[in-house]
Write a protein that binds this DNA or RNA. Sequence first.
DNA 1: ATCGAAATCAATATAATTTCTTGATCCGCG
DNA 2: CGCGGATCAAGAAATTATATTGATTTCGAT
Lengths: 196, 196
Amino acid sequence: MLDNFFNKLSKGKTLTEAEKAVFGQHVTIKKLRKHQYFLQEGEICKSVAFVNKGMLRCYLVDEKNNERIIQFAPEGWFISDISSFISEDRSNLNIDALEDTELILISKAAHVYLETAVPEFFKFNYTQYRGAYIALQKRLIDMFTLSTEEKYTKLLSIYPDIMQRVPQHMIASYLGLTPETLSRVRKKLSVKKTGA
Amino acid sequence: MLDNFFNKLSKGKTLTEAEKAVFGQHVTIKKLRKHQYFLQEGEICKSVAFVNKGMLRCYLVDEKNNERIIQFAPEGWFISDISSFISEDRSNLNIDALEDTELILISKAAHVYLETAVPEFFKFNYTQYRGAYIALQKRLIDMFTLSTEEKYTKLLSIYPDIMQRVPQHMIASYLGLTPETLSRVRKKLSVKKTGA
DNA sequence: ATCGAAATCAATATAATTTCTTGATCCGCG
DNA sequence: CGCGGATCAAGAAATTATATTGATTTCGAT
């Protein structure tokens, strides 16, 4: 059940059976159907979720009422509104399932406990946040420097798997484009390849 | 905003403006998208919902993993797992939205308060439960005594509106039939009408 | 034991909804 | 001005949900 989770955590090192057991006791499984929310605007985010199966998206709703996608999270990824999780105030993000999904939830208490009880977990989180920070910074820079076309092709090359599973209009939303514009960019690209 | 709600409550009598204001303070609005849960198995039901717009269904999942629909709730109806609401233990029912829906939620504290503060509300609930009890008893009797065909036609005649808005396989589930069987019953009926 | 009502299994048809594309037009900015 | 992209509107294409049908099986009541 928790195998994917353990593999992810112990990348490189291995967890002892005792440590695995500790996780087993502090973690809960939750299944979401497609479209179901993990977190809704206004709620306090009570846990960090490891995606064991399926896929989620994290988005916010802007003034004009369109959904702006911040992040996708397929199997093997963690997702949460860390800000809300840590400071325990109301989230302005929404996180919902793009497919039927299975999550492994780590509550705040569990999180705190596990970080001390399993040093490996602490280190893991450290690496995780640092990595996430770096990735986000890159994304920000790309947003400033790349052309729309480049943003899209780069995205494709980094997450080809995700891009296949997600409807185009969500990719557009992730890139900050309208679906129409993305459709046209794709057409242009395919012409490039096909033609001379 | 709360007009439908007040109309329903004050059927016959009229609420004073003061009373309406009291309601306004103790009640919250919640919007659900199609498919979204109001209550999920395992949770404690924290409020009674008045359906202001849209429609919900209440169902349980049986041993064989099929959904058995207990109740539909279109606009103007109340829905909740009263058992869980009153005794505050985990529900084994699921309630979700069949359409985009707007609910008016009455928390337990609000419910208790309002019943004393607004005698009209107390009486209303009294009538409501009594009526619900009677209706349920009738349904039970019908389940025992009517043929499948009769159950279906009776359902149609009592809730023609609901039957139109709900997919057939859910009606089948409500009647305890497979979708195939219901489809055949309907065919037989239409032949009856059309033919000689 | 057997008849009939309904379940089950499998395939297909139909309908509804989502997703994608395209054209026309407009808008802001360097 | 001219470019990149938004907006609006209409269709097309694809996917998913819903409904029907036939063949076969199960099971309780006669």
